[in-house]
């Protein structure tokens, strides 16, 4: 069954979410009619999404569904063909300081000549401002963030000499140093060790307790209901979005991964695992 068919015989995701009363200044992220295309080939279609405050939100969908693109479009890193994105009621460019970003780990060159502490300090650059130098205060903030993710002892190490999990922790520490209210994380769980995975989960819950909102692009269907209290099912369009227990269902997953049989089996298996 195709996605369109699913969308026809049930209230669309956008309609459902529109029913939630919208308070512009308290909605961390409001996406309205967003369409993104790469070289005139559409990647995201008509995305309407209001993310409530204080939720851990998993963005889930098959490869090529546009999950990373959705994040990048919100952050103005890829051009929008149409649509608006509001962060706490204002255009993103006016509310940058409220937003933290953890890019995919492979998106940077880890042979770049900086230490772990240098990378974390980069999270404070937005506050430091143009032309001003990094001061001791900022390095101390960065050091606290590194200690927070449990690798304070690696502060002086060059980043190529860190394991994959440690590198991911450096990125998370950098996001903490940004001191944002809304976080975007692009596959923070990809290829990390079990200890790091648990550390990230702990960190996500801490952020939630502080009333922060976190959007996480996530691949592992088996852990979705365990980690996230809100889910966005994405496959070029928003197939469905809402509280995990309502939205993360077998039918919705079929609709999201529709047509891709191998993936569908995988999804079904994952769902069985997660419900067990």
């Amino acid at each position: 069954m195709g996605i369109d068919a699913v969308l026809e015989d049930r209230p669309s995701a956008s309609q459902r979410i529109r029913e939630v009363p919208s308070h512009p200044d308290t909605v961390p992220l409001a996406i309205d009619d967003l369409t993104v295309a790469y070289q005139s080939k559409p990647v995201l279609w008509d995305i309407d999404l209001d993310i409530p405050e204080g939720k851990l939100v998993g963005i889930v969908g098959p490869n090529g569904a546009g999950k990373s693109t959705l994040i990048k479009a919100c952050l103005d890193l890829v051009p929008k063909a149409s649509g608006r994105v509001k962060v706490y009621g204002k255009a993103y460019s006016e509310n940058r300081s409220l937003v933290g970003y953890v890019p995919q780990r492979e998106s940077v060159d880890w042979d770049y000549p900086v230490s772990a502490l240098d990378v974390v300090t980069m999270g404070t650059y937005g506050r430091i401002g143009l032309f001003n130098p990094v001061r001791k205060k900022h390095r101390e903030e960065a050091m606290q963030a590194l200690e927070h993710v449990g690798i304070g002892h690696l502060a002086k190490r060059q980043i190529s000499q860190l394991s994959g999990g440690q590198q991911q922790r450096v990125f998370l520490a950098r996001a903490l140093a940004q001191d944002a209210k809304l976080y975007f994380m692009d596959e923070p769980f990809a290829a990390v060790d079990a200890a790091t995975e648990q550390a990230i989960v702990g960190l996500l819950h801490e952020l939630k307790e502080q009333g922060k909102t976190v959007l996480v692009v996530h691949h592992d269907l088996a852990s979705v209901s365990q980690y996230f209290d809100w889910v966005v099912l994405l496959n070029m369009r928003v197939v469905n979005a809402g509280p995990t227990e309502e939205v993360f269902t077998r039918e919705n997953l079929k609709a999201t991964y529709g047509g891709k049989l191998a993936l569908l089996d995988e999804a079904g298996q994952a769902l069985r695992d997660s419900l067990r």
């Binding site: 990048k72 952050l75 103005d76 890193l77 460019s93 940058r96 937003v99 970003y101 890019p103 998106s107 940077v108 060159d109 770049y112 900086v114 240098d118 990378v119 980069m122 650059y125 937005g126 950098r174 940004q178």
Partner: peptide, 15 residues
Amino acid sequence: NLSSFDPSLASTLGI
């Protein structure tokens, strides 16, 4: 430094 290492983060910070 930041725009050489991580241009995406640089952009999101307004650089």
